[in-house]
Amino acid sequence: MSLFDVLGSKPRLRIIQELSSEPRYVTELAERVGMDGKSAVHHLDVLEESGIVESYHVSRRKYYRLQRTVELRASPPPERSFCLHTDAIEHAASDDTPAD
């Protein structure tokens, strides 16, 4: 699936927006974006397969966090530019997130 296909989904964009503030576990994330857990897991799987988010476990909860910065820019004439760019996010070794 192309990055355009991945980001062409409103539910996935809402998930990315929510994860931009902090990592969230699946149930919490589903409630915050207004979808059922099964749909949230589907969209999170797509985002994880594309390398935009990553998951980790804390006890029995599965958390997701952004793994990449996603930037989309478009400008009208005369520039006529369109750019979709992603960069990996480096998570500090000292953060509170336990290893998988």
Rank of each mutant, 00 (worst) to 15 (best):
S21V: 13
S21E: 15
E22W: 11
E22S: 15
P23V: 07
P23W: 00
P23I: 06
R24H: 15
R24A: 13
R24E: 14
Y25W: 13
V26Y: 04
V26K: 08
E28R: 14
E28C: 12
A30T: 03
A30N: 01
A30G: 04
A30F: 09
E31Y: 12
E31C: 08
R32T: 10
V33L: 11
V33W: 01
G34Q: 07
G34V: 11
G34A: 11
G34W: 08
M35A: 10
M35V: 14
M35P: 09
M35Y: 07
D36Y: 10
D36H: 10
D36W: 06
D36F: 09
G37D: 13
G37N: 15
G37W: 06
G37C: 09
K38T: 12
S39C: 10
S39Y: 11
S39I: 13
A40F: 04
A40P: 01
A40S: 11
V41P: 02
H43G: 00
H43A: 02
L44P: 03
L44D: 02
L44S: 03
L44H: 06
L44K: 04
L44W: 02
V46G: 02
V46T: 10
V46D: 01
L47F: 07
L47T: 06
E48L: 01
E49H: 11
S50R: 01
S50W: 02
G51P: 05
G51A: 07
G51K: 03
I52D: 02
I52Q: 01
I52A: 02
E54V: 05
E54R: 05
E54M: 08
E54N: 07
E54G: 05
S55I: 00
S55D: 08
S55T: 08
Y56K: 08
Y56F: 15
H57N: 11
S59I: 00
S59M: 09
R60Y: 14
R60W: 12
R61Y: 14
K62D: 00
K62V: 12
K62G: 04
Y63L: 06
Y63A: 04
Y64D: 00
Y64Q: 03
Y64E: 03
Y64P: 02
R65T: 06
R65G: 01
R65V: 03
R65M: 05
R65L: 09
L66M: 14
L66I: 09
Q67S: 15
Q67R: 15
Q67I: 00
R68E: 15
R68I: 08
R68D: 12
T69G: 04
T69S: 11
T69A: 08
